[in-house]
Amino acid sequence: MSPLATDLAAVVALSRRDLIRFFRDRSQILGAVGRPAIWMLLFATGLHHAFSSDLDSRIGYKQFAYAGAIAMTILFGGMFQGVTIVWDREFGMLRAVLVAPVSRTAIVLGKTLAGACVTLLQGFAAAAFAPLVEVHFGAFDAVRLLAAMAVMALAVTALGVTVGSRMRTFEGFGVISNFVVLPLYFLSGGVFPTSGLPPWMHALVLANPVTYGVDLMRASIGQPHAFAATIDVGVQAVFATAMCLAALGAFRRAAG
């Protein structure tokens, strides 16, 4: 096999491995379904009645929080995939991959794609709760939504791999990933509307790439949204590319 063919086979092998692991881990599947279910049913429905008056009159909070709940699932799911890097190093599997005749780029790409696939599956589970929060869209919109989710899953997983490559312990990873994920989530416009925020906070919302991912999801299913779709797509593309490059850099530095 040529080096390129071996690299491609390695990407497939890494992806296949993580998918097998995901489907064999009942707690991961339960988490994928359970977290958005709790969020949408309890949190969103509860708040729906509390402050629906402040929102855009065309949708209620349940509908508003739908894209946010998917984004949350992808953020937590994608970052958690970075833990597989720590896990692999801790339990030696990573070393077995590092002595294989494949390029470091293929290993990072494989790990990231694998994680993005698993994350996207979790996102599917969240998106499937649409009827529960009275969000309705057609098949074409569903495809657009999935595409928006896929780009975000890739970007966030690459971020997880970047953090995971730099961490030596599970505990460290847990702390750092919460520090990264929570602000990205709260400042994304997915939890509360961004109109009427103090200027400093609004600036952070605009600087947060996840904001545009949430906006793109809303646009794709015909909900009111803040930016032009081209801006959303552009920001997401830059976000995903930058994170993949960061993951590559961090992994190379860690792996030598």
């Binding site: 096999m1 080096p3 063919a5 071996t6 086979a9 390695a10 497939v12 092998a13 890494l14 296949r16 491995r17 097998i20 692991r21 064999r24 881990d25 339990f91 030696g92 599997m93 070393r95 077995a96 991959v97 294989a100 005749p101 494949v102």
Partner: peptide, 21 residues
């Protein structure tokens, strides 16, 4: 030990075969 213990013996070897051309 540097095997993936969630995979079967054969799956571990398949993984290795794919990463070794």
């Amino acid at each position: 030990i540097s095997l993936d213990d969630r995979l079967t013996a054969r799956e571990n070897l398949e993984f290795h075969a794919m990463t070794h051309g």
